[in-house]
Design a protein around this nucleic acid. Structure first.
Lengths: 171, 171
DNA sequence: TCCAATCACTTTGATTTTCAAAATAATTAT
DNA sequence: ATAATTATTTTGAAAATCAAAGTGATTGGA
């Protein structure tokens, strides 16, 4: 007999995985076949508005600037990103989306919205609110959890606590 | 004013990213430092019970057997997986978790259950049941959606429909 | 004014994850 | 027997990632 938590966590994990898989498939099937999810991700981090710096964008993505450099190399070659050195401070590189890049970006968020719409479509107002709240709460909890791990300190304590729990649970 | 769909889809995407990041951090911080998320994933696909074949496990994971072969090479070397040829049919390879493998596997699902527990804690019995049902339904819906993309046919139609919508939306 | 430190970025070398396609070895069917 | 099929491994290649070293540009003292 699976506990409530087990059932819930299994379903949630599966949902998230499948959402990502679906995004991936839809990308490969449609326009912009030459974009991977990671590349799409980079495009949305740059965003359709003003140009951004390498460092800021890498930070937003949680990757090193070295990694971003090679990603941008490819996206420039594919024509999705424009790269330009700052006139004032020549150390700085400004990256921005080309027309095609903006298109891809918009299409992606549209796809996500359509998916969410379809998911919510079958429920009445009350259930929808319920679900959105749930998702919001998960979002907050996970983010908070992530921060805790980020700002070290009790990392070791927490993690090995979970490990200890897991080991105890066995018995 | 962000629409429900927008709010929902953004949160879903963020949750997924953060769940993965958090899992990764918790792995790196605790025991089993030498396991990546992908490797953890492979362990849970093998599961703590009977031995499984390469082909079956690869199918479950949605990767090729070639990919799984190299993954298993590493997991065997690290001591998480046991690999053995079938006595009857020597083409078949049986993979199973070692003691350590099972431990890691248990610890991982514990992490996810803790997450679910925290999420459900704020609701009363009735709401919990209701939410679990809703989440189950969504799970089924998303899976079905993914299958639709898998079994081609209307892939192109759907995807370019979304693209068209995205392009129109611009104007 | 100069030079040491800092900053923004790129390059390099390595690892992991992934695939498709070729190779291998075992089994089954004709 | 031998041809076809099956299960897996090997090979060669690409993407995504990091840490650390390298390259220029800028800036803050001395």
């Amino acid at each position: 007999m699976p506990s409530e938590e087990e059932q819930m966590s299994k379903a949630l994990v599966r949902i998230f995985e499948n959402v990502v898989l679906t995004e991936e498939k839809s990308l490969q099937a449609g326009y912009f076949k030459d974009l991977s999810i990671a590349e799409m991700h980079t495009l949305t981090a740059i965003g359709p508005y003003e140009a951004r710096t390498m460092t800021n964008t890498a930070e937003d993505l949680g990757i090193t600037t070295g990694t971003l450099t090679v990603a941008i190399d490819r996206l420039v070659k594919k024509g999705y990103v424009h790269r330009e050195r700052d006139k004032r401070d020549k150390r700085i590189v400004r990256i921005s989306l080309t027309h095609t890049g903006k298109l891809a970006c918009r299409m992606h968020s549209k796809f996500q919205r359509v998916l969410a719409k379809h998911i919510l479509a079958g429920y009445d107002e009350k259930d929808r609110k319920h679900l959105i709240n749930l998702v919001d709460e998960i979002d907050k909890y996970v983010e908070q959890q992530l921060k805790r791990y980020d700002s070290s300190e009790n990392i070791r304590a927490t993690a090995s606590q979970v490990a200890q729990d897991a080991i105890k649970e066995k018995n």
